[in-house]
Every structure is written in C-alpha cells, then in structure tokens.
Nucleic acid binder design. Structure first.
Lengths: 245, 245
DNA sequence: CGGTCACTTGATCGTCTTCAATACCAGTGG
DNA sequence: CCACTGGTATTGAAGACGATCAAGTGACCG
C-alpha cells in the first residue's frame, strides 16, 4: 500500500561551526529560545540532515532517540493500521518541531513530501540543555499546546464535518500557513498529493477530487494546476469551513 | 440542541489550610510536582469547586483565566459547530489537568458528566509558581505530550476506523482507564451517556447502540446495564480495535 | 400508575466509498 | 517530433455503511 524509499542524508557533521547561528529557520523555531551567547551549545548537538521526497525519517514504534526541527520543505506525519489504512495527523513546514513523545517510542511516522532539510537532536542531550534554558522548555510547552489545539480542531473536522466542509477547512488552513505563490495574495501551493489530502481529511482521493471540482465550478476557488489553489471567495469558504453554510 | 444548566459551586475559599496537602488526587496529578515543603504555596492559589452533572465550567471562546485539576468525577471536553453538531475531544477523570491553551481563550468547552470536584488555579498565579518549580513545567509538558499522543490515536479512529472498530477501541480504552466495578476485573462503568459516546466516536446514538448490541450478541462483551460493560474476549476485542480483524 | 428520559430496534435514505475507465502530465527513447 | 510509459488526477456508475426518521421498550420517579 505504501512503500517508503530512500534514506536521509547527513549534510553537516554534528558540531559544525555556526550552523545554528546562521540558520534561517531559527527565528521561526524553538531554537530561538537559546540566546546568541549560547548558540554554540545548540550547534554542538545539532545534526543537519537532508531527506529526498518520500523518505521516512521517523518510524512509528521505533525507539524515540531524537527530536527534529524542520528547516526546509514539508513533512507529513501519519499513523497506519495493519491493513494499510493511513491517517495523516498533520503537515509540518519550516520551523516545526517534531518528536514529542511520552513513551520511549515514536507515536507516529514522518516522511518528506518534497525535499526536506531538518536538524536532529539527541533526546538525552536536549534534556541536559533544557535544564539550562528554561525558556526552551516553555517554548516546547507552547508548541505542544498549539498542536493540541490543532488536534482538537482536526477531531471536530474528522468526526463531524462533511466532505465539503473538510475541504473548505483544509483550504483555509493552507491559505493561512501555506506557501504563497507569485501573483494573487490568495493563491498558494499544495505540496502534498490528493492522496495525502484524502488521508489527512479522512476521505478518499476520489471524494477530494470531486469536491474540489465542485468548489471550483461553484466559484469558491480556482485550480490553476493540480498543486495550486486560488481562493476566490474567502468569506464564503470560511463560512463553509466553520459549518455556517 | 444542548442547553447546559447549573453553575459550579465554590466549596473552599482560596487558601484554606491543607487543602492540597490532604488532597487524595494529588499523587495522580501535576500537583505532585510541588514538594511537601512548598505545598502551602499551591494551596494558597487553589480554589476547590464542585460542579453538578451537566454543568459547563469551561466555555469555548471565553477568556482563558484559569487552569483546572479534576479531583473527583468525570468531565467531557468538546467543541461545537454553530448548528449544534458536537465533537467530544476527550473525557477527563481524577488527576487530569485541563486548560492548556495557546491563545487567551479556551479552545474547547468542558462539562461535568457526574458530580465533579476540581481545583481552579489562576493562570497568572500558576505562571509565577512555575518559575519556582521547573519540575511542574516538565510535568505539564509531559501531560501535553500524552494528550497529543491520545489525540493522534483519536484522529486515526475518527478518520479511518469503522463504527465497529471505534466501539472496540473505546471499550478497550475505558477498560484500561475506567472505573472498575465490583466482581470481574474486566467489568467497568461507563459514566457517560450513549450520546456522549456517539459524539466522542463521530457516530450517532443509534449506531453506538446497534453496534454495542451486535458486539454483545457476538460474545465480545456483556452489558449488565446500560452504564456497565464487561469484556468477555479482550484479545479479540483488541484485535478489532487495532484493525487486525 | 402516568410521565419522562435514555436506550433500543426497525425501515429507509443519502453521502461517501468502491470499482472502473479515462484524462492528463512529465519524462524517456525511438 | 511523437509514440510510449508510469504516475497522478479526474470522472462515472454502482454499492455499502452509517445517518435519519420513526416507533417501541424499559427504567426511574413523581
């Protein structure tokens, strides 16, 4: 049903000078909590890695040895049932932090959608770092809280919204946090496939495609290409998304 | 569709002596992170409150002024759509911590299912407390991480499992963390109604009822009363729950 | 007892899925 | 340049699972 491919590639050995100080994703991530004066300590435990599209770099059930911080590209997190049914629990872009887990194993898998760059941090080393930077711990709590709120929204979507409302919600979300394309402000790229969208929204590929087409013919959106969307009627779409229609 | 009733009742004024030191729920909660020597500081900001069945004590959208810690009873957390569709995001029992939110408003509502007792803590006061007890911050992060894992499981359930599998998952979960009844070890109480279960599993009352009946006639479970379940075949039910059947 | 409320059971309906065919697009080689 | 190929997306027709509508049952309580 789903056979991942290549392996992640380490770009910089751990401790390479200034990899954190010059990191363009730092300001958007939890690494921001470490002050400039101590940034070398963070760099000392960071391993910069690249993953080609389709690469699985976190495997559900594996022992949770590392934290991850995305610095480029888009990632899908998912859980699977033994017979191949897949639920994507979220997409992560630049600045996102991955790997929070209670137990000693990962609760989900993570794959690169496009070309992804991320930093790996050993959990043990991060723990010692956290003791010195309580601000970092606060940031992690904020991250977890944010994810929790998003997860609750997604439960409402999966449990109670119609296919139409799910697509509307998804498009509004992407338009807020997605990559903006040249031209219209309301136009953005969808790095993920229809299959990914379906598995994120608890639908099938066919229903996603059909519903998008319908939203297009009704004038809510435009679909310049399969991986681009422009929102024509943001207000109406938002109403759809929140069940006001 | 759903009209909450009474108001919570404050039992002890804030700062009553020893309310935390003698709290029977303390060992099961984040309050455990405050050492005995400083427990008075915690007690000083705790407001013990009782809520009758059906009472809404957190309202989605209200400004998030407090944290909550359940010391007796069972609570349902939920989100609603404007037309009354409801998604229950979880149930909380003794020791559970509520109120994590990023923004300044609650992201969900919470209601007492049975008679509930909880402690209210002002967020501002908790924040100052956290600075002195980093262990508490770590506990909160652990709580948030645990909830996140549970939320991911629930997304898989809502997005990809059949009604049968949802009920099996729910019953296995309740059998693990629910109130054990006298007699058989596999027998437990369901404090929530069929409507609550339906809104938790993304189903209707009718489907919940029908599916439970079917699981009973097939020998997976017994239903001594509407609010009690005994699991006859835990292995088979677990297989159902995880999609192995 | 009569009334209410929650739960159960039955019959029909609709949304989304499944199965299947077709269209499209990028890359490759004749 | 264009046929060929593999993958992804779209469209169509039939089917199924759970929802909806409706009636019936049982428990609790005044």
């Amino acid at each position: 049903m789903y056979t991942p491919s290549t392996r992640p590639v380490v770009l910089d050995p751990r401790g390479a000078a200034n990899i954190c100080a010059n990191c363009e994703a730092r300001s958007q991530s939890v690494c921001d909590a470490v002050p400039d004066s101590d940034i070398a300590r963070l760099a000392a435990i960071a391993v910069v890695t690249r993953a080609e599209p389709g690469t699985t770099f976190i495997q559900e059930g594996d022992s949770a040895t590392h934290f991850f911080n995305i610095s480029a590209g888009t990632v899908r997190m998912y859980k699977m049932l033994p017979d191949g049914r897949r639920q994507i629990t979220g997409f992560s872009g630049v600045g996102h932090f991955l790997g929070l887990a209670v137990s000693d194993t990962y609760a989900f898998s993570a794959e690169a959608i496009d070309r992804v760059r991320f930093c790996k941090f050993s959990r043990a080393r991060v723990r010692t770092l956290l003791d010195d930077f309580p601000a970092m711990e606060k940031r992690l709590l904020a991250v977890a809280s944010t994810e929790l709120v998003a997860a609750q929204d997604q439960m409402l979507l999966l449990g109670r919204k119609t296919a139409r409302e799910r697509l509307a919600s998804f498009l509004m979300l992407q338009s807020r946090q997605g990559t903006i394309c040249q031209g219209s402000r309301s136009r953005f790229a969808l790095p993920m496939s229809r299959g990914d969208i379906a598995d994120y929204l608890g639908l099938t590929i066919e229903t996603v495609s059909r519903t998008l087409t319908k939203l297009r013919t009704e004038g809510f959106i435009e679909i310049p290409s399969a991986s681009e969307i422009a929102i024509r009627a943001p207000g109406a779409l938002e109403n759809l998304a929140t069940g006001m229609a």
